[in-house]
Computed example of a mutant assay.
Amino acid sequence: MYPAELSAASQDYLKTIWRLGEWEPERVTTTVLAARMGLAASTVSEALKKLTAQGLVTRPSYGAVQLTEQGRQVAVHMVRRHRILEMFLATELGYPWDEVHDEAEVLEHAVTDRFIDSLDEKLGHPRADPHGDAIPSKDGAVDAPSAIPLADVLGPALVRVTRVSDEDPERLRALGELGVRPGVTLSVRAHPTEAGALRVSFPESADAERDGEPEITLGILHAEAVRVRPAQQTS
């Protein structure tokens, strides 16, 4: 089954199921999926019945939803479209990184594979989207770097940001304003506070304004939205 043969809603379900388990194993249930998509559980349940009948998902007796190989292929195809469009919107049209997601959600269902391939070539075949999420290759391979939540880092440590979650646009905007983006090096100054907040600085920053404020504090929710790896790791 080709993605174009499915409705936009079905494509979104498959893509969301895949994304829920992208960074860490997650037991995807009807309730979890409904919460992520902002839909009623009954609506999601009916959609899953249809996707199961089409051979795109399975629902074992313990209740978790899993993609079949065919369902995964469709999901990754849609993820690739979405993230290439996000890169185009951010780098070529100047969209803020907290606004590209919603725009790409609409465009990904309207453009052709030829259009996506042309954008990919024009952009130089980027490996990640503006938030650091891996862009699947045309054949469906996903090369995501290993990374852990910043909230799990026990300082002092020097880390490089690999990904910032785009799940919450307001949080994404706030982190961007603080300068926390993929590729940025952070120096974690100390162990988390009792509330889980982290104190970090930007050792590679040449920003004069930043020099006057060498350290910032990230709350636990902000720190959990950021994934990092050791700064000396280059691949």
Rank of each mutant, 00 (worst) to 15 (best):
Y62Q: 12
G55T: 05
R19S: 15
R59S: 09
V79G: 04
H82G: 04
T58Y: 04
T68F: 02
L39D: 07
A34M: 13
Y95S: 02
E24W: 06
R81W: 13
Q54E: 13
T68S: 13
Q70M: 08
T68I: 08
I17W: 05
E26C: 08
A53T: 05
L20Y: 09
P96W: 00
K15N: 07
M37Y: 11
V57D: 01
A35N: 09
F88Q: 09
A41N: 10
A53F: 07
K15C: 10
V74Y: 03
D12A: 11
D102A: 13
V106T: 02
V32Y: 07
G63T: 05
A75N: 03
R19V: 05
V32Q: 06
M37H: 07
A75T: 08
E26V: 05
W97A: 01
R83M: 06
R81P: 09
R19N: 08
L56K: 00
W18C: 06
A64T: 11
L67C: 08
V32I: 09
G38F: 01
R59L: 14
D102I: 03
E22T: 14
E69Q: 06
K49Y: 09
E22P: 03
A34F: 08
L89D: 00
A34K: 13
L85T: 04
T68N: 06
W97T: 03
V65E: 01
E92T: 04
V32E: 12
E46G: 01
A64D: 13
T68G: 14
V76H: 05
E103C: 11
Q11L: 11
V65W: 00
T29S: 15
V100D: 00
S61N: 08
V79F: 05
Q73R: 14
Y95M: 02
